[in-house]
Amino acid sequence: TFKSLGFSGLALQIGRTMVLQSSSTESFTLRVYSCKDSLREDTQRAGLVISHAGAASCLESLGKGEPLVIVINKKLMKNHQLQLANQLHKQERLFCSTLPGLLQSMDRSTLKCYPPGQPEKFSAFLSKVVGLQK
């Protein structure tokens, strides 16, 4: 499927549960690893990121302006990943779906860019309330 959509390769982080071998053909490379310290290098290179709605993955990918598809992990406490996913979907920052069909139907150009957060507002607030002098 990925190949028919014009993707040239797939990098998978699979955790420690499955066994899968990396392989490659002329037009498609499949790279597999169990766990990595940082996926930044891979996501930067990628044309599309598919992930759970963990805050870290979402922020990292969106912050870099990469199109993101998230698949919700429903088993977590009260399905809380769905909150962030729905909100970002409402703001048209990402596609949110459980259907593989999405990969075929989506139009990546409709997505809006995700502006960076403003931690400096936090530091200004904190310095004020703890009485830190400039």
Partner: peptide
């Protein structure tokens, strides 16, 4: 005060990423 000691509960995974983003802005 001029400085203060900070204790950060980093926890795990996404929480750590988020809190480090916040800490990055602190002097």
């Amino acid at each position: 005060r001029e400085s203060l000691s900070l204790l950060v509960v980093a926890g795990s995974g996404g929480h750590t990423t988020e809190i480090l983003r916040l800490l990055g802005s602190l002097s």
